[in-house]
């Protein structure tokens, strides 16, 4: 039982509980806050995996920017407590739960067997910490084109949001 084990189980448990809370709370604010908890726990897991840069981005972008957006919208729409009732009725809801369980079993099974996968078996897991320098180097050499495309996607999203909201205003006027 190393420190890594302990930390993994702690972060793992927190993220799971957070996730379950997201889908359980009636009030969206609570759900959003639970999601933030999950994100922080995941950032911890990333640190455990030696991905310090990703962990930092996780906190800054997800827990910071994206969640703020969520909270902002929730407040903007002034949503009160919602019924936890599913949109699905009767049998379909049961079916959804059964499907979720099945999916979980399959996913876990695949994950368990992945440890015995030959490719992963033979490889010596690297323990070294990935530096930001290295990520930057890769980003501007091997992944230059995807990187540029990503910037275009963000630009498109930016314009899209403006258009969506602006048209609404005109329609109201």
């Amino acid at each position: 039982m190393t420190a890594e084990h302990v930390l993994f189980f702690v972060f793992g448990a927190v993220s799971l509980i957070g996730a379950i809370s997201v889908i359980s709370f009636r009030h969206p604010i609570y759900s959003a806050l639970s999601l933030i908890v999950t994100f922080f726990a995941q950032a911890g897991l990333f640190v455990l995996l030696g991905a310090h840069f990703v962990a930092a981005v996780q906190v800054i972008v997800y827990a910071g920017a994206i969640m703020v957006l969520f909270l902002f919208v929730i407040m903007l729409l002034n949503l009160g407590t919602l019924s936890a009732k599913s949109a699905l009725k009767g049998k379909l809801k049961g079916l959804a739960v059964v499907l979720g369980v099945l999916l979980a079993i399959q996913g876990v099974y695949i994950a368990m067997t992945a440890g015995t996968d030959t490719a992963l078996e033979s490889a010596q897991a690297s323990t070294e910490v990935v530096t930001t320098y290295k990520i930057g180097e890769l980003l501007f050499s091997k992944y230059l084109l995807p990187f540029e495309v990503t910037s275009l996607i963000l630009l498109a999203a930016l314009i899209g949001v403006i258009v969506l909201v602006k048209r609404e205003n005109q329609a109201e006027n």
């Binding site: 996730a19 997201v22 949503l79 019924s83 959804a96 499907l99 999916l103 979980a104 996913g107 994950a111």
Partner: peptide, 21 residues
């Protein structure tokens, strides 16, 4: 990690399926 990932993913799926908000 992969088991944890699978569980988190499934919770996400379940949430999409049963919540209406």
């Amino acid at each position: 990690y992969l088991v944890l990932s699978a569980l988190l993913f499934t919770i996400g799926v379940l949430g999409v399926l049963i919540r209406r908000n």
